[in-house]
Design a protein around this nucleic acid. Sequence first.
DNA 1: CATCTGATGTGCT
DNA 2: GCACATCAGATGA
Length: 264
Amino acid sequence: MPRKRRRAQALADDNSKEMDGALIEREKDSATSKYFKDKMTRLLSDFYNKSCIELAKSFLGQILVRRLPDGTELRGRIVETESYLGGEDEASHSRGGKQTERNVAMFMKPGTIYVYQIYGVYFCMNVSSQGDGAAVLLRSIEPIEGLDTMRTFRNVRRSEQSKPLKDKELCNGPSKLCQAFAFEKSFDRRDLATDKSAWLEAGSSILEEDIASCARIGIGNAGEWTHKPLRFYIKDNKYVSVRNKAAETGVPCLSVITAFQADK
DNA sequence: CATCTGATGTGCT
DNA sequence: GCACATCAGATGA
């Protein structure tokens, strides 16, 4: 195993220890804890009261924070999400309402993190929402703090002589953001609302007119669900993985309304 | 820019 | 066996 991979593995192994360590650190600083508690109040009510689509939209503009074992904090603003609605959604891992070892987190309480491995190599991170088997996939993040660390994590799978990553390439994709923030399998089934290594902070709220809605990415053959506008991103934002000019300029189409009804 | 390919674990048929 | 909510690197226009 190359040295870079070993380092990443060591980091993964650290995660259980890290939970306890970070807990102690943050409990020590009660002012800090209160700050986060206040900041998260609104976001917590979002987890519990919003539909999957509403949650996917309200995540836009919020700050995702990752605290590493050494105390380093990584921050970024969520700019792109996707809704996976549950049983009826043919593109969802929870299609047919089927619960498996892999996807149980999707059926757990809103705010539960669902991390799965894809193509044997990468991870994707979701947050469970209201609705049986429904979850929001985090697709792209605008990095704010800890960019050097993110770049180091992202370089693990890249060759030494390849061009340095631009800031906008650090987290512009679901597996890229997992690499940059060191989210992996051990985060599966953990609670984003109470976890000591990952949490949300209130950022800016995004106006409906500044949100683009269009088809989700990478879902091949899911029938009518393939084209439903369940991907949401901040218009004109350069940190988004794939932009869709039509979705940024056009008025919301009929299928948006249809998808809304499907979510209720 | 578009399109192709290899990497490769795990869930599911 | 096969598909997969992906990415990096290569190749050709």
